[in-house]
């Protein structure tokens, strides 16, 4: 009974990993036969400015995204938890969660509409307030932030729900004791709540970071890597190399490197938070 799943995992997950490492040792485009080049692709990668640029863009995306998602979802969870009225709590939870039911593609679509340079809502408001028009997706310095905003908007509700269920597990009596000792809200949060939901925080930090390294969908739709390559994150670069330029060998080289990088970051974090599983 276990066999179908095992075969599935073998064919569609395990063999592909080995295959990816194998392909990365070849010079291979669709037209010519593949030729074995050993570590040549890896050496080329180290000289490829576009590759390092994509890693740098991914890191920048990752840092902004992770900080925003973590802080906002935690604040929202604390806010929803603090609502006394059950009905209000329910409504707020649904309102904050709702974006997560939407696909990245549709979300990106609506936000393009909002960000539109000429007649978009945001620019209309900004001119009304006197800040003036922004280029948003057309600007090399703002496009990445716009892409981050969409990612955050989509995922915050999801992490808020996870934080919320962790907050509900903190016994009310702890807070009562703290209040008797005269601790204020902020002290209560940092001395009681935060230490008690540490496992959940670690889980969210790790999954958010892993997710941020794999961003693709909204970039493809919103900027297609541009303007001027300013949103070409590594996964997008891999996609371009493989499925637009047909350099399958070199694209695999970067894919393998990226996965090693992700694994390294994850292990480093587990060490950092001192979790032995």
């Amino acid at each position: 009974m276990v066999l179908p799943e095992i075969i599935g995992l073998l064919v569609f997950l395990f063999i592909p990993i080995l295959y990816a490492v194998y392909i990365s040792a070849f010079d291979w485009d669709v037209l010519s036969e593949k030729t074995f080049v050993g570590f040549q692709n890896y050496q080329n990668m180290l000289k490829d400015e576009m590759f390092f640029r994509s890693i740098w863009i991914t890191l920048r995306y990752s840092i902004i995204y992770v900080v925003l998602v973590f802080v906002l979802s935690l604040i929202m969870a604390v806010f929803v938890q603090s609502l006394r009225n059950k009905y209000l709590q329910q409504t707020a939870r649904i309102a904050i969660y709702l974006p997560n039911t939407i696909s990245t593609i549709v979300a990106a679509t609506v936000w393009i509409f909002l960000f539109e340079a000429r007649n978009g809502y945001l620019n209309r408001w900004l001119t009304a307030v006197g800040i003036g028009r922004q280029d948003f997706l057309g600007s090399t310095s703002q496009a990445l932030i716009c892409v981050v905003v969409v990612g955050v908007w989509l995922v915050v509700g999801y992490d808020m729900i996870i934080f919320l269920s962790a907050l509900k597990d903190v016994p009310e009596s702890y807070y009562e004791a703290a209040r008797l000792d005269g601790a204020n809200c902020i002290q209560q949060f940092f001395k009681i709540t935060f230490p008690l939901i540490k496992d959940t925080s670690v889980f969210i930090a790790i999954t958010t970071i892993i997710g941020s390294f794999q961003v693709f969908d909204q970039i493809r739709v919103m900027t297609n890597g541009g303007p001027g390559g300013s949103t070409t994150v590594t996964v997008f670069y891999i996609y371009q190399l493989a499925f637009e330029k047909y350099q399958f060998g070199y694209a695999s080289t970067i894919a393998v490197t990226l996965s090693i990088l992700i694994m390294f970051v994850t292990l480093f974090q587990l060490k950092l938070y001192k979790i032995d599983d």
Partner: peptide, 24 residues
């Protein structure tokens, strides 16, 4: 061992296997 192996496949990012998957 098999169960641990199954769990370990959770670590694989999709971007690594998308090219080989296409060929499979």
């Amino acid at each position: 061992g098999l169960f641990l192996w199954v769990l370990s496949t959770m670590m694989v990012p999709f971007s690594v296997i998308m090219i080989p998957l296409f060929f499979i």
